[in-house]
Design a protein around this nucleic acid. Structure first.
Lengths: 343, 343
DNA sequence: ATGAAAGCGCTAACAC
DNA sequence: GTGTTAGCGCTTTCAT
């Protein structure tokens, strides 16, 4: 017998429903999908069988057949970094209502890992990808995307050579502008010896540029020693602060690559007895929840994580549901600047 | 022609590899899986074809056939709640090395949503589930799990009627004990009017019990008014504090259902000019990153999120790889108590 | 208004 | 050591 009917245990499959209702598999399929008319009486009967058997369609099988898995993959550096949960939430809030499930993977910012995760995701037939690359250059993405699955990248607004066109949909924040605004604020307060505590990876360069551009414009060439790069973590901030604050001519203000680093800077300021903002002004980036909680509360550039998530998902969705097939788009999500107590 | 060969675009499939290498599909499959010996020369040829065509097996098809999707579903209330990212990270850190991908879904703590997500996950043929139920009672899970897919629940240690046995693998924290410890600490400091600001949902009852038990033991029956239940959020803490601190005989200490609430309590203490811990001692629960950052830094019960994640994934994994098929297990992850500045 | 049958891309008996 | 073939559970031509 070809049909494993009467399998009393386990999930019912479509063939059992068909037999139970006395119709063909095709008819069951169509009463479910509504893609073809089914006589009222037949439909009722099928529906009743479905209920009785507790039938639920197997999405794997469906996906194999339709080439649509209703699945999306989100690849970020680390969900433990408080910036990303909101991004993830924003994405899911727009995707879930459309029936998409989301794979979440942490790349730890390693290029090899990012590459692997993209490949693996595609192997799993995801319908789309949202990637926040950290080490991987955007130009590296192309070759990985052989079968053209839509991807949107979340990144700092890139200073891309204007000759090569946008390759992928992307949602970007104007990190450069955000840091510039923060730096100008400090300048206006009269600070002149301002340092920049940077992390590494994708977000680092634009943030640095925003700082360096502004400083050069205002005070001319400035000491290289005022720029130090560690990591985008609290410890990174601690390390950077130790270096910066040991200088004989220590800075009166430090702009940080992100809030986590700023919190680290606050740690060492407290440790060595520097009053913030009296002796040292500190500015962060991101505006994670903890920024407001730090003492003093962090003055920071807000990186709208949730909005970033939503926008990227909307971009992706427009391709998934097929109402957009045009060239790559870039949506810029504006940053803003929030003045609290640390500067 | 049955075989869609020469499809110059898109992904190569196994049949193309087979043809290119001049072998059968079976042989390709076996050189990949290693589940049957393939002559060295043949294998080399196949491998070369695979490389040349850039072939990658379709995991959906594989999953359909093998009934193993290498996929796990994680259902939590909200990834934006700072407690959960570490849980998620812990899970992924143990699952990913074994090839499992993780679906992440937010239930927002609604029973209907939790139920739906479990069903949908199963429809997608996940190999296992990890659920942190908020509204859904554990006993509600049974019916949803018709085809026995392994599930592990992350929950506060339940006071289950000792007659009915454990139904599912679970990893629990001894919330009751944790809160009791915190309460005893306050008692030892001489506090007598101690209030409890609770949230709602699964974690609420055990935490309350830990408080109430201890209080009754120490000071006898105490005013019901000292217990208020709002929500496990910062705003919930604010609401609770307003109620509690308006009393003519306001408490000298408040134990909170979680850190977010404690932070909210701190907000109103500051607002109405109460010194913490001088005028009011505050204790939280969870020890999220922000707890240390709050001012004053929160004295709190540490709920080891990352360990919870790891343990639950290990429990699940033991069933997935099939070396455990016994009865449901419960692993208790101990809480600890960290004394900082708020109490 | 409904069915038969082909096949999505793969694995695994069952041959030889 | 390798190939043939029958599915996994579904959707979708193509018939009638």
């Amino acid at each position: 017998m070809t049909l494993d009917n009467g399998r009393s245990k386990g999930r019912a499959v479509i063939a059992q429903v068909a037999q139970h209702a006395g119709v063909s598999i095709t008819t069951v399929s169509h009463t479910l999908s509504g893609r073809r008319h089914v006589a009222r009486a037949t439909r009722e009967r099928v529906l009743e069988s479905i209920r009785e058997l507790g039938y639920r369609p197997n999405q794997l099988a469906r996906g194999l057949r339709t080439r649509q898995s209703l699945t999306v993959s989100l690849i970020i550096p680390d969900i433990s970094n408080p910036f990303y949960p909101s991004v993830a939430r924003g994405i899911q809030d727009v995707l879930k209502p459309h029936g998409y499930y989301t794979f979440l993977s942490n790349s730890d910012g390693e290029a090899a890992s990012e590459r692997l995760l993209i490949r693996d995701s595609i192997d799993r037939s995801v319908d789309g990808l949202i990637v926040a690359p950290f080490e991987l250059a955007i130009s590296d993405l192309g070759p990985l995307l052989n079968p053209s699955v839509p991807i949107v990248v979340i990144a700092p607004k890139a200073e891309l050579p204007s000759n090569d066109p946008l390759q992928f949909d992307s949602v970007v924040t104007d990190d450069r502008h955000g840091v510039a605004e923060a730096t100008r604020y400090l300048l206006r307060q009269g600070h002149r010896r301002i340092a920049f505590a940077n992390g590494s990876g994708a977000p680092a360069s634009e943030r640095l540029a925003g700082f360096a551009d502004t400083m050069r414009g205002a005070v001319g060439p400035f000491s290289e020693g005022l720029i130090v790069a560690t990591a985008f973590t609290r410890q990174g901030g601690i390390d950077a602060a130790r270096i910066l604050l040991e200088r004989q001519d220590r800075p009166s203000a430090i702009v940080c690559g992100n809030d986590l680093m700023a919190i680290g800077v606050l740690d060492v300021a407290r440790e060595i007895g520097l009053a913030v903002p009296g002796d040292l002004a500190v500015i962060g980036f991101d505006d994670i929840d903890a920024a407001e909680l730090a003492s003093p509360a962090l003055t920071t550039v807000v990186n709208p994580a949730y909005a970033l998530g939503r926008s990227s998902a909307e971009l992706l969705l427009s391709r998934l549901v097929g109402d957009y097939t045009g060239p790559a788009r870039e949506v810029v999500v504006p940053t803003s600047f929030v003045i609290r107590a640390s500067a």
